[in-house]
């Protein structure tokens, strides 16, 4: 509790998938208000070098860097249970 987790959400401009991913992540954050998370949103077309550096092939893509290592979730996060699983593990370890 209290320790912030850093998330990176790679999106591609204003595409429907990107919009959905942001909305789904925000909704999840509201539901799980007790977890302090910091989200960096990166538009791959604005900074293609970042996409290249991180090897982001598919978008939207959520990268979770925590003490337990890196977790990557690809997609618009429609299935939030996967997000919960990944993040609860990270929050527990934190």
């Amino acid at each position: 509790m209290g320790t912030a987790i850093t998330l990176q959400l790679y999106i591609a401009g204003n595409s429907p998938g990107s919009r959905r991913a942001r909305a789904n992540l925000e909704a999840w954050g509201r539901e799980h208000g007790q977890v302090s998370i910091e989200v960096e949103i990166i538009d791959v077309f604005d900074v293609p070098d970042r996409a290249l550096a991180a090897g982001v092939l598919l978008t939207p893509q959520l990268v979770v860097d925590g003490p337990g290592g890196r977790t990557v979730i690809v997609g618009d996060l429609a299935d939030t249970s996967l997000l919960t699983d990944a993040l609860s593990f990270e929050t527990r370890s934190a």
Partner: peptide
């Protein structure tokens, strides 16, 4: 891990 729709952007 995939969750929902994604693309090749």
């Amino acid at each position: 891990i995939t969750s929902g729709d994604f693309d090749l952007s």
